[in-house]
């Protein structure tokens, strides 16, 4: 029984208590994904599973047989960052950086959600496709807290990538 993280296969853990987050960090050794609250309140552990962002702390690794997980390491590298990774750098979208991997995984999936027309609580008319306003970005990113308060720069980074259609 295996799951895939960033295109590499891993054997599922024998202890069912292992969260997907702990599996990513300890078993797979991918420490980019961060543990903040461990209760789904902060979003630092956000990863993308089969194309959708989830809190990896609130799911068990053993429930993810054959699933494809993408972590921050799978989005880009220091020499070849993704558009969002580059935009967070350009706009200084962080201070301490602890929430940043979760922010970027979350934002990556969020742009796909908007492109697919998924509404949010900020969408004026949910029968139409949402427009990417700052209000939409803030609402859709509300599952990712930043204790340093870098929110204005995070929004700016996401807006730049969205407007460039990258």
């Amino acid at each position: 029984m295996t799951l895939t993280i960033n295109d590499k296969e891993y054997e599922l853990p024998s202890d069912p208590r292992v969260s997907l987050l702990d599996f990513i960090r300890h078993d797979a050794g991918l420490s980019g994904t961060k543990k903040g609250c461990d209760h789904g309140q902060c979003g630092a552990c956000t990863v993308i599973v089969n194309g959708e962002r989830i809190n990896s702390c609130l799911t068990l690794a053993i429930m993810h047989e054959d699933d494809a997980v993408t972590t921050i390491e799978g989005l880009g590298t220091p020499t070849n960052p993704s558009a969002l990774q580059q935009a967070f750098l350009s706009h200084d979208g962080y201070q301490c950086g602890y929430c940043t991997p979760g922010q970027i995984c979350s934002a990556t999936a969020m742009l796909t959600e908007i492109a697919s027309g998924l509404p949010s609580d900020a969408t004026e008319d949910i029968s139409t496709s949402p427009k990417l306003t700052d209000e939409e970005i803030r609402e859709r990113m509300s599952g990712n807290l930043c204790r340093c308060g870098a929110y204005p720069n995070i929004v700016a980074a996401i807006r730049e990538v969205a407007e460039a259609g990258l």
Partner: peptide, 21 residues
């Protein structure tokens, strides 16, 4: 289109990460 109250209520709760699960 037909039950917007349900979509609105769901979207008013939790976060996108949680609603995905």
């Amino acid at each position: 289109s037909d039950y917007p109250i349900l979509a609105k209520a769901i979207l008013a709760g939790a976060t996108q990460q949680l609603r995905n699960k």
